[in-house]
Amino acid sequence: MRHATGPVRPTGQWFTSRDGHRWWFDSGAQALDFAYTGGMGDGRSAWELMHGASDLASWFEGRFDEVTRDVTDREFSDALGLRGAIARAVTAVSRGAAPDGEDVDVINLFAATPDIPPALEGGTRQAGRTRARVGQAMSELAREAVDLLGDDGRERIRECAAADCQIVFYDESRSNNRRWCSMQRCGNRAKVRAHRAKTA
C-alpha cells in the first residue's frame, strides 16, 4: 500500500521462529511491517527488533532512502508509541472491533505532522532539506495506517487463517482472498495437513 503522492515502498521482512526457522513475512503495508518490529505483542509470535535508536535508524534506512540515520532518544520513544498504537488498532480491526480512541489519537497526531514530500528528479536545484527526519517517515507510516484503518482499507485487514496463528496482514491481492500470513509458513503447513488427511 502507498500514499497517493508518495513513492512505492518495499514491504516485508525476515523473521525467525522460536524453533529457529527463518521465514519471510510480507504484511502488505509499511505500517504493518513497522508494527511487527515488536511482534504486535501477541505472545506467540513476539519478536523485538527495536532495542535502541540505532535499530530504528537501520529499519528506516532499508525503506526510506531519504531519511537521515541520526535518530534521537526522543524520536525512538515516539516511534515505539506510534508502533504500539498501530499494532493495537489493526489487531482490533482484524477481530471485528473498533480501535481504542487513544490509539486513534496517537495515529492521527503523527499523521498530522509533515511527511516526506514527493520530489521530481531531474531538476538543477534542491528544494528544502536534502535529508528527511525520522519524524517525517513516522508521519508517512501514520498516514498509511489511517488509510488501512479507514472504511476502504479495514475489510482487507485480517488474521492468518491458521488456527495456531494470530498474525495480521493487509490483503493486497486483486481477488481479496489471501488466507495465510505466509505460504512458506502457515500455507505450507495447511497443505501438508490437508494431504495427510486425504491419504489417511
Results as ranks from 00 to 15, higher is better:
Gly6Tyr: 03
Pro10Lys: 03
Trp14Thr: 13
Ser17Thr: 10
Ser17Phe: 07
His21Gly: 13
Phe25Gln: 06
Asp26Leu: 00
Leu32Asn: 03
Asp33Gly: 14
Phe34Val: 00
Thr37Ala: 08
Gly38Val: 00
Gly43Asp: 01
Gly43Asn: 05
Gly43Cys: 05
Ser45Lys: 13
Leu49Ala: 14
Met50Asp: 06
Gly52Asn: 00
Ala53Leu: 05
Ala53Asn: 05
Asp55Leu: 07
Ala57Asp: 09
Arg63Asn: 03
Asp65Asn: 14
Asp65Thr: 09
Arg69Leu: 11
Arg69Trp: 05
Asp70Gln: 13
Asp73Lys: 14
Arg74Asp: 06
Phe76Pro: 04
Leu80Gly: 11
Leu82Val: 06
Leu82Gln: 07
Arg83Cys: 02
Arg88Asp: 01
Ala89Cys: 02
Ala89Arg: 01
Ala89Lys: 01
Ala89Glu: 04
Thr91Gln: 09
Ser94Lys: 15
Arg95Ala: 13
Gly96Pro: 03
Ala97Glu: 15
Pro99Ala: 12
Pro99Trp: 03
Asp100Pro: 07
Gly101Tyr: 11
Glu102Arg: 14
Val104Cys: 12
Asp105Phe: 08
Asp105Val: 06
Val106Gly: 02
Val106Thr: 06
Ile107His: 02
Asn108Gly: 05
Leu109Cys: 12
Pro114Ser: 09
Asp115Thr: 14
Ile116Gln: 01
Pro117Gly: 10
Ala119Glu: 12
Glu121Ile: 13
Gly122Phe: 00
Arg125Pro: 13
Arg125Cys: 09
Gln126Arg: 11
Gly128Met: 07
Gly128Pro: 09
Gly128His: 05
Arg129Asp: 14
Arg131Cys: 06
Arg131Tyr: 03
Val134Met: 15
Gly135Leu: 09
Met138Lys: 15
Met138Gln: 07
Glu144Ala: 11
Glu144Gly: 12
Ala145Trp: 01
Leu148Phe: 00
Arg154Val: 04
Arg154Gln: 02
Arg156Thr: 01
Arg156Glu: 01
Ile157Asn: 03
Arg158Gln: 12
Glu159Gln: 13
Cys165Asn: 12
Gln166Arg: 11
Ile167Gly: 10
Ile167Thr: 11
Val168Met: 04
Asp171Gly: 00
Glu172Phe: 10
Ser173His: 01
Ser175Arg: 12
Ser175Glu: 03
Ser182His: 07
Met183His: 00
Gln184Met: 04
Arg185Gly: 12
Ala190Trp: 10
His195Cys: 12
Arg196Asp: 03
Thr199Glu: 12
Thr199Gln: 14
